[in-house]
Design a protein around this nucleic acid. Structure first.
Length: 498
RNA sequence: GGCCCCAUCGUCUAGCCUGGCCUAGGACACAAGGUUUUCAUCCUUGUAACAGGGGUUCGAAUCCCCUUGGGGUCACCA
């Protein structure tokens, strides 16, 4: 273990702003940071960027924590964990930022600006209209010191802007190589608001520096911010961290991912019951790959194989089908006992049964879940698909109804079958009961001279309302007697309609 | 619009840096078979891509340039 510290130094951070839920893109950024830290025995810091007090909420902070806990992305330093470089909420770090601003002011690398929002808005509007470059015209940059003093003393509100000098910024990016911006393209951006609070770009520099961050891994939408931040690091004589700007995730048609494209909040995936290992695998494979062969990665595989260099440069579209596939893959790998433990609270929440009943009926529940976990990708789907054991069938799925109608005289056959299996419910041993169902069914098929292929879809339909179910013998043996016989006997209720 | 980033099957991608092994590989999805007493799993097979144009070179998916396309960003938001 002591060996892991030999690689030491590496410190990364995930720095979400708590203005909403933790979305897919953010979760992946957090994952990549986490993996990089774990891969190299570094430190993963969580920092909450809540300098925007209007939009930040405690609920959103909690949502982010929950999302990260669901995915198992535990941070080494940060809220609830502590650490030597706190506080880990930007809102509590004002004094640190103030010092930086004062330092820049003292060096003549920042200046007060008295321009009003109205003037700025007008300026922007006229620039847009003239189709020239949009940006601050540096009106206050070279104000006479006497005038500045006079206006400040008169109580005129002002912001502090960073003075961008001539030159070129070079961003060391581990994924894209060196990215360059001409300084003239960069505005004299505001670093402190009129109310005295600091703005994002300055806060980030103060924190990344203060927290000794060595690698900044974040979405490529930050590339232009990075240019400003590098300028700030240099102006303050602080070491510039290495960067890795990861490609963005898009919805279908390469549009920005939105609610219309399905769940964007990781909490929703948690609620649907995607296993964390499936989400991790899915998230990691969007924009990252190991070789031309492997697709399935466990948490430990990811830590072992992850590298920033193998992150692709182009954006990825979010593909639900792939997630579902991964979901069912990992579901099959989970021991039934564990799946049952996760499913139980959901069943109780649905009022299918009480906790006491669950304990008493554990053996049957175990088998019901076992049969479903082989063919479903989420915990909620498992619940949906075992609902028929607990609830009456409201309606048949179209496919099920169709296959039921296809077989002539099916209603009669089914009720006849019901009378044949009545006795099997007397068998208390589950395996013996399954065998008994098989025997009864086989005998019945012979008597009636029909094939299982002809009869099975009908049985399946009336018993479960669904076209895809686990093997029939097991399924019947796992049902309660009364609803089983009742459903078999009343198949005509589905046929009579329309 | 300025600036920046990107460009291989429908999707995620391998290959590109260090040109020839690429008649471009894998996975998801889709289609067709097979296994399964029924569903699913599973197995086999198939459809399907180097954005376009110029160079450089004996030879380019791989290097260079242009075009086109997509994305990001231009707040007293983060």
């Amino acid at each position: 273990m002591s060996e892991t510290n030999s690689n030491e130094g590496i410190r990364v951070r995930f720095a979400p702003s708590p203005t909403g839920y933790l979305h897919i893109g953010g979760a992946r950024t957090a994952l990549f940071n986490y993996l990089y830290a774990r891969r190299h025995g570094g430190t993963f810091v969580l920092r909450v960027e809540d300098t925007d007090r209007e939009r930040s909420t405690p609920e959103a902070v909690q949502a982010i924590f929950e999302g990260m806990r669901y995915l198992g992305l535990d941070w080494d330093e940060g809220p609830e964990k502590g650490g030597d470089y706190g506080p880990y909420f930007q809102s509590e770090r004002d004094s640190i930022y103030d010092e930086l601003v004062e330092s820049l002011l003292a060096k003549g690398k920042a200046y007060p600006c008295f321009c009003t929002r109205e003037r700025l808005d007008e300026l922007r509007a006229s620039q847009m209209e003239a189709k020239t470059r949009v940006g601050y015209d540096r009106l206050c940059r070279d104000l006479d010191p006497e005038e500045v003093k006079r206006r400040q003393e008169a109580g005129e509100p002002y912001v502090i802007r960073f003075k961008v000098e001539e030159g070129t910024v070079r961003i060391p990016d581990l994924i894209r190589g060196e990215v360059k911006f001409k300084n003239e393209e960069i505005d004299d951006f505001i670093i402190r608001r009129a109310d005295g609070t600091c703005v994002y770009n300055l806060a980030v520099v103060g924190d990344d520096s203060g927290m000794k961050i060595t690698h900044v891994i974040r979405g490529e939408d930050h590339l232009t911010n990075t240019a400003k931040q590098v300028l700030l690091f240099e102006a303050l004589d602080l070491p510039v961290p290495k960067y890795a700007h990861i490609p963005l995730i898009f919805g279908p048609k390469r549009q920005k991912l939105s609610k219309r494209h399905g769940a964007v909040s990781v909490t929703e995936y948690d609620e649907k019951g995607y296993l964390p290992e499936a989400m991790l695998n899915f998230l990691a494979r969007m924009g990252w790959s190991f070789d031309d062969k492997e697709e399935i990665f466990s948490h430990d595989d990811l830590i072992e194989k992850f590298s920033l260099e193998s992150i692709s440069k182009s954006g990825a579209m979010y593909d639900v089908k792939k997630l579902e596939h991964l979901g069912s893959h990992w579901m099959r790998l989970r021991p039934t006992e564990e799946v049952l433990e996760m499913v139980l609270p959901r069943l109780v929440a649905r009022s299918y049964l009480t906790e006491e009943q669950a304990q008493q009926d554990r053996e049957r529940l175990f088998h019901r879940v076992e049969l479903e976990k082989e063919r479903r990708s989420t915990l909620e789907e498992i619940c949906d698909n075992i609902a028929f054991y607990f609830c009456a069938i409201e309606e048949l799925e179209p496919k099920a109804l169709k296959s039921l109608k296809k077989q002539e005289g099916i209603a009669e056959l089914l009720s006849k079958f019901a009378s044949k299996i009545e006795s099997v419910f007397g068998e208390s041993d589950l395996q013996a009961r399954i065998k008994a169902v098989e025997n009864a069914l086989t005998a019945f098929l012979e008597e009636e001279d029909v094939s299982l292929k002809q009869l099975a879809p009908g049985i399946r339909a009336v018993l479960t309302g669904r076209p895809n179910t686990p093997p029939l013998f097991d399924l019947i043996a796992l049902m309660d007697q009364a609803p089983c016989l009742q459903r078999l006997s009343s198949a005509d209720q589905w046929l009579s309609e329309s």
